[in-house]
């Protein structure tokens, strides 16, 4: 069975460590916040200027001055801090943020990522994605393994305009966990019931399979 979006987020949450500062992108990455292990101290950074992002507010308690990078109303947790946008990207550029999780349209076997522009379609902009991928110490991509047409999103080289080069370290898709190594995509785990053959057939870039590939556990 391919993973649901929630399960992709749940699997990524197992990569979190106590004390991590984490930036979560829009979409599946946002869901990772729901699976932070109990008792683990993980501080969420929102690039519009907040460290210590809390859950959504209760109805009637929304504050228009307090939003996340997806422009949603949010809350703060005890110990949070506000800052301006230059400092926000300053701490990202300086490598202070331990982990960045974001979505992608394509990832190449060398870790290039494309997630901001499709030629011929209205371009909305890169937002903070180019800053994040250029500087983050550790980038995990959360995405479906194939696009709606069934084509692989893990390619020898990206076909879409790039967001950043040689930056993605790990990919968690609906069917596999893959590390991006100097030699290509390295298969780490497979989704329950998904065969190595299926992952191979859906991975257009170079896929390295060594030994038995364990199933993800939930």
């Amino acid at each position: 069975m391919a993973l649901t979006k929630e399960q992709i987020a749940q699997r990524i949450a197992t990569e979190l460590k106590d004390g991590f500062y984490v930036n979560l992108g829009i979409g599946i990455p946002t869901l990772v916040a729901n699976y932070i292990p109990k008792g683990m101290n993980v501080i969420l950074q929102s690039e519009n200027g907040l460290l210590g992002m809390g859950p959504f507010p209760f109805a009637g308690e929304e504050d228009p001055d307090l939003i996340n990078a997806g422009k949603q109303t949010i809350t703060t947790i005890p110990g949070s801090a506000f800052f301006d946008s230059a400092m926000s990207f300053g701490m990202i550029r300086a490598g202070k943020v331990d982990l960045t999780v974001l979505g992608a349209m394509e990832v190449s076997e060398t870790g290039d990522i494309a997630n901001w522009k499709i030629p011929g379609k209205m371009v909305k902009g890169m937002g903070g994605a180019m800053d994040l991928v250029a500087s983050a110490k550790n980038i995990i991509v959360a995405m479906m393994h194939t696009n709606p047409k069934g084509e692989s999103k893990l390619l020898p080289a990206c076909t879409l305009p790039l967001t950043g080069v040689k930056c993605v370290k790990k990919i968690v898709t609906d069917i596999a966990v893959i590390d991006v190594t100097n030699n290509g995509f390295y298969l780490v785990e497979r989704a329950p019931g998904i065969t190595v053959e299926e992952i191979k057939s859906k991975t257009a870039g170079k896929l390295i399979v060594e030994g038995d590939i364990p199933e993800m556990k939930f």
Binding site: D84, A86, M122, V123
Partner: peptide
């Protein structure tokens, strides 16, 4: 934008902030 009535320059958010 699509009609060519508006010119747009898209730049990364951190670049925008830091140029200020």
């Amino acid at each position: 934008l699509l009609n060519g009535e508006l010119e747009v320059e898209l730049i990364p958010q951190g670049t925008l902030a830091t140029r200020c």
